[in-house]
């Protein structure tokens, strides 16, 4: 996972890259790493989605990249502005790190995944590959030149989808 230009995406954040840069986000747990890309344009965007729905927000200011229903529209707009036309998506994350029964928030992983998939469906973006669920954290890196998504976990090393 060594490249010259790595754009890092923080938690509840998003960004886009052109080839030859790659884009990475670290330590996905229940959060979803959403990658939307256009192979022909060698363009890729990544969002680190934390919560499913912006209607959950209780504050005055909404950080768009935090919620599935606002992050994906924002990402799509950025990608189109950069010349993207035909999109595919790859997903990783949505794990359940802790086994709590008492709190609804603890089952946030599957809810995030469902919300992300609904958005992608609404935009007509097919999911090319995904590595979601389970109970392990993931660090992901996407390369827009070939559409490869590398996934690193603590125990299983690096895989590629």
């Amino acid at each position: 996972m060594k490249h010259d230009f790595v754009v890092k995406v923080g938690i509840a954040d998003l960004n886009i890259v052109h080839d030859p840069a790659v884009i990475r986000t670290s330590g996905l747990g229940s959060c979803i790493g959403v990658v939307i890309y256009d192979l022909r344009a060698k363009l890729g965007g990544m969002a680190h989605v934390m919560l499913p729905d912006s209607s959950l927000a209780k504050g005055e200011h909404i950080k768009l990249a935090k919620y599935a229903d606002t992050a994906i529209p924002m990402l799509m707009e950025l990608l189109r502005k950069e010349g993207g036309k035909t999109f595919k998506a790859k997903l990783a994350g949505g794990a359940q790190m802790f086994q709590f029964q008492s709190n609804d928030m603890m089952r946030i992983g599957p809810r995030n995944l469902e919300a992300v998939k609904k958005q992608l469906k609404d935009y007509g973006v097919p999911i090319a590959a995904e590595d979601c669920g389970g109970s392990n954290g993931r660090t992901i890196e996407f390369n827009p030149s070939n559409g490869a998504l590398q996934i690193r976990t603590v125990n299983k090393g690096v895989t590629e989808i």
Binding site: I11, A12, S26, G27, L28, G29, S30, C31, M50, L51, L56, A57, K58, G59, H61, K63, K66, A95, M97, F98, M105, M106, I108, N136, G137, R138, T139, V154
Partner: peptide, 21 residues
């Protein structure tokens, strides 16, 4: 849990992330 910092601590932020950044 024995895993990455981000994957673990993000759970502790879920509740407050609905209110603050």
């Amino acid at each position: 849990a024995i895993d990455m910092v981000g994957a673990i601590l993000s759970y502790g932020l879920l509740e407050l992330s609905q209110v603050n950044d």
